[in-house]
C-alpha cells in the first residue's frame, strides 16, 4: 500500500509539473483574442503547415529509418558504434546548431546548391529537413529497440518455410514491430511539430506554429502568443490521444 502511494505521489509531481502550466495557459487565454485567433487564417495555415511538414519528415524517416534500425538491431558491422553515435547526435546538439549545420549543405551558397541550382531554403522542404534532422533519432531508436526484442529465429523459420529474406522481413519482422513503429513515428512527428531552433534558421517563412508563436510574442506580447499556443496544444493533444487509442487496438 505504502509502495503504491509513494509511487503515485512521485508520478503525480511529474504530471503536475507538465500539466499545470499548460492548463494555466489554456484557461488564461483571453476569450476575445482566442475567438479572434480561432478565426485567423494565418494561424490555421501555420498550424497545418507544421503538422504537414512534420508528417513529411516522419514519412521520410520511415522509409530510410526502418531499414537502418533493422541493420543496427540485427547486424554486426564495422563502424556500427559510429553510426549509432551519428544517429543519436541530434538529440544532444543545440537545435540552432543543427539548423546551421544543415545550412552549410543546403544553403544558397553551398556547393550542392551551386552545382544543382536547387534552392530549398525558406520552403516547406527546408522545414521538413530541419524537423527530420532533430527528431529522427526518436523513430530510429524506438524501432531499433523493437527489432532487438524480436527473436531472429522467427525470420529464420519464415525462410525455412520458403520466404526470401525480403518476404520474411515484410511478412514477419515488420508486422511484429508495428507497435514500435507507430509509437516511434508518433514521437518523431510530435517532436517535429514542436521544433523551433533548426526550423527558424532554415525557414523563417513560411512560418511554422512555433515560429509564429515566437513572432507574436515578440511583436504583440504574451496576450497574442497564448491563443496560438493553446490552439496548437489542443490540436496536437487530440491527434496524440486518437493515435494512442488506435494503437491499442
Amino acid at each position: 500500500m505504502k509502495f503504491k502511494i509513494i509511487f503515485s505521489f512521485l508520478g503525480l509531481l511529474l504530471v503536475l509539473f507538465i500539466g499545470v502550466p499548460i492548463l494555466r495557459m489554456l484557461v488564461s487565454a483571453d476569450p476575445g483574442t482566442l475567438a479572434g485567433t480561432a478565426g485567423d487564417a494565418e494561424v490555421y495555415s501555420s498550424i497545418f503547415l507544421t503538422l504537414r511538414a512534420s508528417l513529411w519528415s516522419t514519412i521520410a524517416a520511415l522509409i530510410s529509418g526502418v531499414p537502418l534500425a533493422y541493420l543496427l538491431a540485427r547486424k554486426r558491422f564495422r563502424g556500427k558504434k559510429l553510426v549509432e553515435g551519428i544517429v543519436d547526435l541530434p538529440v544532444i546538439i543545440p537545435h540552432t546548431a543543427a539548423g546551421i549545420a544543415l545550412l552549410t549543405v543546403w544553403g544558397r551558397h553551398s556547393l550542392l546548391s551551386k552545382a544543382t541550382g536547387l534552392n530549398v531554403i525558406g520552403t516547406e522542404i527546408a522545414i521538413s529537413m530541419g524537423m527530420f534532422f532533430v527528431s529522427v533519432p526518436f523513430l530510429v531508436n524506438a524501432v531499433k529497440e523493437g527489432f532487438k526484442l524480436i527473436d531472429e529465429r522467427y525470420e529464420k523459420t519464415a525462410v525455412t518455410l520458403g520466404a526470401t529474406p525480403w518476404k520474411a522481413f515484410l511478412t514477419v519482422s515488420l508486422p511484429m514491430v508495428k507497435k514500435s513503429i507507430v509509437s516511434g513515428s508518433l514521437m518523431m512527428w510530435g517532436r517535429g511539430i514542436s521544433e523551433f531552433g533548426a526550423v527558424v534558421i532554415l525557414a523563417y517563412h513560411p512560418m511554422v506554429a512555433p515560429v509564429l508563436i515566437f513572432e507574436r510574442f515578440q511583436n504583440f506580447g504574451l496576450k497574442y502568443a497564448v491563443p496560438v499556443t493553446a490552439l496548437l496544444i489542443v490540436i496536437s493533444l487530440v491527434i496524440f490521444i486518437v493515435v494512442r487509442i488506435f494503437e491499442d487496438k
Binding site: 520466404a163 514477419v172 511484429m176
Partner: peptide
Amino acid sequence: MLFPHLNVFNNIAYGLKIR
C-alpha cells in the same frame, strides 16, 4: 517460433501463402 501476429490457421498456411 509461432508468428504471434498470425492466428493458428495463418501460421500453418504461411508456407503455402509464400508459394
